[in-house]
């Protein structure tokens, strides 16, 4: 259990630094910046207390906002997906394969499950971030288009990271 907490703290710090120092500098077509830090919320073990998910999501968003001068936008979006994540797990899962203490991932839950789960959360997060950033609905479809392009890139990085770091356990 302690090991699990420790690993999640390390992951928290690692993802914040990775996002801030590496991914924030990526700009594809001048508007796409993959937000891979939300992987932290996705990988929290099943049956983590919901208040804990919410609080850690709040802190995570706060850290990202602090570095990217985006003042609260990421906090709002991350709290939203922290709230949605248990719900998304229930929607996607077919059987009761969500054993407590196991973290979601391609190896534990299968590619299709994880992909849908990540898709829901990433889409929710990105739409929230992009509309809060623009803060108007005049360019509604342009903003939506940008958000969805960004979802594709973030998802690619999230899936790649799954194969990079969680392969040996099989």
């Amino acid at each position: 259990m302690n090991n699990l907490i420790f690993r999640n703290i390390i992951r928290f710090i690692g993802l914040v630094l990775l996002q801030v120092l590496v991914f924030n500098n990526i700009e594809v077509f001048s508007f796409i910046t993959p937000f891979i830090y939300i992987l932290f919320i996705m990988l929290l073990p099943f049956n983590t207390p919901r208040w804990l998910i919410l609080i850690s999501g709040f802190l995570l968003g706060l850290c990202i906002d602090m570095f990217s001068n985006s003042g609260g936008i990421h906090t709002a979006a991350t709290v939203l997906i922290a709230y949605l994540s248990p719900w998304a797990q229930n929607v996607v899962s077919t059987k009761s394969d969500n054993e407590p203490g196991i973290q979601p991932g391609i190896l534990n839950s299968g590619f299709k499950w994880f992909f849908l789960y990540a898709l829901i959360l990433t889409t929710a997060h990105h739409i929230c971030v992009f509309y809060l950033e623009i803060f108007r609905f005049t360019d509604f479809f342009d903003t939506l288009k940008h958000a969805l392009y960004n979802v594709v890139f973030t998802l690619v990085f999230i899936i790649i990271s799954q194969y990079l770091f969680f392969n040996r356990k099989s």
């Binding site: 208040w51 919410l54 709040f58 003042g71 609260g72 906090t75 709230y83 809060l132």
Partner: peptide, 22 residues
Amino acid sequence: YYNFFLFLLLEFFAILIIYQNS
């Protein structure tokens, strides 16, 4: 429904920060 209220509270803080920041 304390989770939901916690969610609302945190979102409120986030919006407050956005508001203050702008």
